[in-house]
Design a protein around this nucleic acid. Sequence first.
DNA 1: CTGAAAGCGCTTACAG
DNA 2: CTGAAAGCGCTTACAG
Lengths: 348, 348
Amino acid sequence: MPKIRVTLKTIASKLGVSVPTVSRALKDYPDISKETKTAVLKLVDELHYIPNNLALNLRKNKSNIIGVIIPEVVHFFFSSVIKGIMQTAENHGYSVLLTQSQEQLKLERKHAKLLFSSHVDGLLVCLSDETKSFDHFKIFEEFNIPLVLFDKVLDTDTISHVIINDREGAFQATEHLIHQGCSNILFLKGPKDPLNTIERFNGYKDALEKYNIPLDSSNIKSCPHITRPEAYHLVEKVIKEGQLFDAIFGVSDILSIGALGACQDNGIKVPEKVCIIGFSDSEMCEITRPQLSSVYQPGFEIGEKSTLKLIQEIQHIENDGEQKAEQIILKSSLKIRESSNRILKTFC
Amino acid sequence: MPKIRVTLKTIASKLGVSVPTVSRALKDYPDISKETKTAVLKLVDELHYIPNNLALNLRKNKSNIIGVIIPEVVHFFFSSVIKGIMQTAENHGYSVLLTQSQEQLKLERKHAKLLFSSHVDGLLVCLSDETKSFDHFKIFEEFNIPLVLFDKVLDTDTISHVIINDREGAFQATEHLIHQGCSNILFLKGPKDPLNTIERFNGYKDALEKYNIPLDSSNIKSCPHITRPEAYHLVEKVIKEGQLFDAIFGVSDILSIGALGACQDNGIKVPEKVCIIGFSDSEMCEITRPQLSSVYQPGFEIGEKSTLKLIQEIQHIENDGEQKAEQIILKSSLKIRESSNRILKTFC
DNA sequence: CTGAAAGCGCTTACAG
DNA sequence: CTGAAAGCGCTTACAG
């Protein structure tokens, strides 16, 4: 036989007082007799009273829940972001309702609606690659529910967002390759062009320009599904066809790792003949031989900063403040490892 | 100025009918006039009415939320489990409230309480390594809120759980090493011994016994933090000290990968001199050279099956059924790759 | 110091 | 076919 949940009513009737009195005793109200307070606290403890958040939320019109829509969970970068979100949310008394768009606009829409009806206090979204407008988030704006975007965003100056400086990161990576003596650099990208891929490409271009290296469009290669075998076969094909190159820059580590494998299996020494660098600095970079250089993308920090910004907006709104959108740009940084380092070789 | 949320009241007053009538019109009640129904539906559409789940939940005493406590998010295996949970939950109309214990009993406790007060309909837990009892989950049992454990469990026949056959998986891995001609097999384990590590050790022992290989306790090595550098340095030390071995079985891929690096950097050929196999079959296994053999642990399926079991229990309870605990054991399987394969070498 | 009343948004017997 | 009433568990002005 399951127990009946202990409510304020249970306690009130056991004590012969009213429900509001119990409620007040629990919340350290100024006017409340010492006796009732201690009696209430004693019973609360004995009966293991746990407040019903559902009722609280309905009453206060506040759920203390943050909704999250993320394209993919099984991914080093995104899971780091989630961790940053969860830890920050928890520290501020919020819970996290997590959903996954799987890069589909349809699912993103569905989850936005669900999270709205669940009365989340705020929403954290990394847009799917299919998303080209903010239509489905309009209700959040209308009802003053804060929305903060991170990582993959669209151009906006009305919605706060946290991104990294993709262009600068890609610039540094490309410049580094050039400093290693490379000038014929393959650029491996995904299929569609979300804003951050475009920015990475711009960074690549910037660096070439700075060093007066003409941009060769045949050096731009696309891996529609962003998988390792895809990059492997693509680079292998390039090699077999005799196209020359002395470096590879992949917009994602997994692409660079596929490229590395293709070079190795076709007798091209890395970094001696070809330098390779990736993007994200996932844990896999330390596992390849040679270890893979990469542009570090601070996932945890992105989660942390977006959540802080969101909570700040939530509190601001609760105080009836006007809200202005803010763009937060985090710094990426170069992690040079063996795959692009012709000077020193380190191990482990 | 934020809009006021549209409620049944808004619609009722615009239409000059009562709130219950609107409610009934929306839910396809039998007795309801065609006219009111169409009028209501029209307004619902125009005003973009979205029901308030908070109110619904309070009323129905059901949240359609599943609580999840997982030790770590940034982890290939766990994130696969989470994906399985989320997809299955979503397909059945449930949302997921995700929390992370970080392997700490203290946090697990805290989250259990929080999830209880959030009135989750059921709870999915992978126990932290520190957890030695079910005390903090007792309230769920008392109030008939289903709990399903997965992966890391304690011995129980009152709580349903989904695990893999760790012992069998480890047995197969060890037997495979023996078939490769190995007989002096290092066993790398973590610090504490959660049930699944013990089972993996038992599988290792079983295989040695079957082939009459004496168990050498100096072959059992511990990596307290389960990190790659740890395993690297441990195995390097073993090599430098001249302890002989011809194979390594790590209870986690990351340990085996560290071990692989140590062998390679110390001139020990893999798999020629030493065969190596890991556990989990994470994506990293395909990235090392040689690629790492591993015992596949079906993460997505574990998430899927636990969620299905949980939902089944939730529905069973809603129908006042008695509940019996079930143990679901999923099969692991061997993924043989280069690191333990002396016969054929494959690439890519 | 404490109780009665009202209300958050919804649903469901009970009347009519 | 529809409304008035009650209630899910809580909080907060309003009286006294």
